[in-house]
Amino acid sequence: MMLRSMMLAVAIGFGALPALPFGPTPALASEFTGRFLLETHDGKRVNDESFAGRIRLMAFGYTYCPDVCPTALSTMASALDLLGTKANQVVPLFVTVDPKRDTPAQLKDYMAAFGPRFIGLTGTVQMTDAAAKAFRVRYEIHPPEDGDPNHYVVDHSAGIFIMNRDGSFAAKLGYMADANEVAERLRQVMDGEKK
């Protein structure tokens, strides 16, 4: 619990000081910018500014989970349920890191399982790569074990991002976060704006 609150505190700090600590550190290949240019599952080209004015609840992943599937999108959907009408202020986004298989049609179908609010984002490999880098999400494509080029495995860093209405970073929650925690952080972001 303490560790979790500490990480949360640090994560908030990370958002508050975007440019300060990260510049000179060679281990950090890229800065967290939260920028992206992608296509929705309806084929519309969007960037981070397209959602200005709404809080974004974001996850990265892929629909072809080969062995186990994270329940992050279910958690996000339940968190929005918990918010009631306040959920209208939030746009849930899912960015694929596997655009080769996650075509707009595939994503659209998948998003439908989590509710009409969910928007799946894909693009060319360059576009999804750039988005993952901008959120410092790491992923690796593993070669197929059986020689079939469509049977590769993707590992990625899981978690749920909350971005402010202006697209800046608000929080990142771990993959074990439950719907109550996600809803609470969203409420905190909304309440923080009122002060």
Binding site: G13, L28, D155, S157, Y175
Partner: peptide, 23 residues
């Protein structure tokens, strides 16, 4: 120390999705 903590935490955001213990 805040910056040090932020740096330390920022380095590894754990890659967990593909590494969940199974069995």
């Amino acid at each position: 120390s805040f910056i040090a903590a932020a740096l330390a935490s920022a380095l590894p955001w754990p890659a967990v999705a593909g590494k969940v213990a199974q069995g």
